[in-house]
Amino acid sequence: MSLKVKTMAEMMASGQTPEVLFWVGCAGSFDDRAKKITIAFAKILQHAQVSFAVLGSEESCTGDPAKRSGNEFLFQMQAMQNIMVLNGYEVKKIVTACPHCFNTLKNEYPALGGNYLVLHHTEFLQQLINEGRLTIKGGVFKGKRITFHDPCYLGRGNGIYEAPRELIYKLDSELVEMTNCKARGFCCGAGGAQMFKEAEKGNKEVNIERTEQALEVNPDIISTGCPFCMTMMTDGVKMKNKETQIKVYDIAELIAQANDL
């Protein structure tokens, strides 16, 4: 079944302007696990009757892994091409489910001429709830122990700790915090373009360390808000042979499940 998501080009052709642009990101477009987050978030947007569009084939990598690996040239090439597209459509407001895209679009595009109001999807969802446009049905996760793994680029990188947690409260579930949470959240190991290469020599993988920290609080669900953290934590749980007991979900997936979308 198709989700009938509109692109900016289609919107523009029919003379419409969406409320918000959903920036899907590379992981959200291509990674099989992350695509499920994208679908869940799109369904919530449709359910809440938010007028949104995506760039589709006009979207390209924000350049985050290029910049963080040290290739500023490629980053700026990507950024300027994206800015041309975004400014061409006169985009004002962007929402994304990827903290890396979020950080880059929000903080690093302005210096290159791209000025937008950029929101992480957890912030956007919280706003929808506050405005009464979305209600979360409790029940499915009632009494479940959910821990939240803070993505570095959402938490420390941009100081957003509460939006995802407030959403978890709305699920009627029990939020259990790891010792290393919020500003002391421990990285999943994917940031800084580490996702795209083997780790340097050490005595452990970063995602295993983080998964062990999560397992310490005996969660039923490890939740997060980043497609790369998702990969790392899912792999970590598998390595620990806990995948039957413990599930890893993005907050958007939890809400979509709670609302039976």
Partner: peptide, 21 residues
């Protein structure tokens, strides 16, 4: 990233595939 706008080898034209899946 330089050739197809993503860190993996996927075609930029397929960016909206998820909506069909």
């Amino acid at each position: 990233i330089e050739n197809n706008g993503a860190p993996w080898q996927f075609s930029q034209a397929d960016r909206l595939r998820w909506s069909e899946e």
